[in-house]
Design a protein around this nucleic acid. Structure first.
Lengths: 204, 204, 204, 204
DNA sequence: CATGAATGAGATTTCATTCAT
DNA sequence: GATGAATGAAATCTCATTCAT
């Protein structure tokens, strides 16, 4: 009971702080925010943050993992009610492309985390998991499609990697220069182009 | 003479410092290095750095511009002796893909600069220029190919953006996780695939 | 309660620091002291000073305002229990002249602040307020005296300015060269001379 | 010959630097200027300054002495062609009051030097000399006037000190707050008032 | 004489972390 | 659990002065 209560408050506080950290990092950037900023955003004292998180790094690592969880959960949610591999692949691409339009900060914050790739083992692992997951999910869809004779017989790992490349590459160009091209239009176009390319027209 | 000499030393020192900054940022990361690190790397006193650069920001901006200059110059060098659009396109893709293998730090440092997109006007502009340049160069090659009837009649801006997406997307996945797939192989494959796709087989 | 306590400590620390600053500036001069000096004088760490004051400027501005407050309060205290304009004028002059003898540093520190007249808007304003206050208080006394027929009908603003000039001019000469003349004697003399000059002898 | 030439250049350079220092201190303030500022103003290198002056202090001390020389010379020039003590006293007051209107910076720079009173023996001495000189010149005029029966028999040292007080006190109030009163008018008024007061009307 | 590059000490300021309450 | 005052290390930047050329 006691423990349960404690655990509840503990989890709630950690969630509050993670959320506050996301907001603060979105606005001020990964390297320009202070513990005080988090405290103010969360409406707590600075000291309390170190009660719930070992240190700043720990708090940030937690945020990264939370973001990863959210992205994957959201992706899975979008795919789970679809059964046709073609629909699933379309949804996979759409979902990834739309994320950056719905919540641009998501990607900015992720970019900031990338700078830790070389300097923080655990963060590198977390980032790697996200992209591995992308490729895995995509590969799974491709395999299903091939099994069902709806997709051409392609190199699945390579194709999955290329699909992720196209989507991520487009997103990055958009994030760097949002007015350089019509992102929504291009996102739509690559979805069609990808599906067009791998669709087994002679099939059935 | 006098002026030339002065200018020489000034330029030499700035180049030394820019180079030292590149080395230090490569190793320690954009946000973890100090002016003292640069001084030690360059074998100078800390004060001298502020004699040649207004402040840390100024030094970093200079490094970014230098990197941009180098990338573009290197790209241009590789393309200028080729005349056939097919060769040029192949070289464009190869060059971009190879860069990260030859000098992995190049990309890590660039990633670090991306975190300034939201916080530094001038750096954003510099980064945007690089990617605009990528798309422009690629578009130019595509246009040549179409004019010469070697490429299909495609949407040039879109296709250029997609090519850049594929290359950059692949690079990013490689940088995040160098052992997740056989980068060199995939890089080779997308080059062929891209060219295959836009080549006008009915032409001539 | 809670808030009050916090406020108490906050105010106490600020007062301690202001006092420490006064001591340090008195000894080392406005431009030769460091934050570290203040910290040592107050027995605190350097970081704490910036916890209570935004920066060095803020701390100094606060000191100036405190000095102003003290001077005015002390002046008012000396005058409030006197009702006869002649007594009040005598007290006004005496008080001003005595201040520099009781606490010579007061004036040295003020002199230091004067060097900010051209370079710091808020300090200029604070300094101007002090002298405006001097002239206003003096004018008020003169008006009372005239109304009561005890003083000649004189140009009040001009006379007030002249009285302040005589006092301040004497103080400055004393501060510059304390042994050049018998300050106490001269201070006494100008008080009598001023009163003698404006006293309405035909009155009553 | 050689020595003479050397000496000429030496003096010229020192004068140039003193003048440049005055300009720079006027604009930037006593404590905010750098050797580089002086070098730029004088069109020399920073190194050369230390060839002609031992250090920054030395340069400033020289400036103070130069200002003193100028003020005294200018005062003497204005007085030397006048013989009547009344005229001479009027000129003495006028000249002092006008100086601040003609060249406001003069006084600002002097104020800055006053902050050295407690911290620099030689500067204190230089400043003291100026005010001693003021009182001496004034005393001399008063003595002449008394001898010639034109002035009342007054306490000369005291009166001289008071005259200097009135003038300096007015100037300071003007410098602190140039729009608080009509300085030119008040300056004119005190001149008349002073002369009126000490003029021996029963005389002759 | 003259230059200006180079030094290096020192100053302000920031901030993660701790800990007494 | 919660607070926020306090610490102190570290970082950037400034600048008088020196000295090789």
């Amino acid at each position: 009971m006691k423990i349960k209560e404690h655990s509840d408050i503990f989890d709630i506080r950690r969630a509050q702080l993670t959320s506050a950290t996301y907001n603060v990092v979105s606005q001020k950037g990964y390297y320009n925010f202070t513990i005080k900023d988090i405290a103010q955003e969360a409406g707590m004292s600075t000291g309390l943050i170190h009660y719930y998180f070992k240190n700043k790094q720990d708090l940030l690592l937690n945020l990264l993992r939370e973001i990863n969880r959210n992205i994957r959960a959201s992706l899975q949610q979008d795919l789970e009610h679809l059964s046709d591999p073609v629909d699933r692949l379309a949804a996979f691409i759409e979902r990834a492309c739309n994320l950056v339009m719905q919540e641009k900060n998501y990607f900015y914050v992720l970019l900031d985390f990338w700078t830790q790739l070389n300097h923080n083992e655990r963060m590198r692992t977390a980032i790697q998991k996200l992209y591995t997951s992308y490729r895995d999910v995509c590969s799974e869809i491709l395999n299903e499609g091939i099994e069902q004779g709806k997709f051409n017989t392609i190199d699945v790992r390579y194709t999955a990697t290329m699909i992720v490349s196209m989507v991520q590459g487009l997103i990055i160009q958009y994030v760097i220069d949002p007015v350089a091209f019509d992102y929504a239009h291009y996102a739509h176009k690559i979805k069609n182009q990808i599906i067009e390319t791998i669709l087994n027209k002679g099939g059935q």
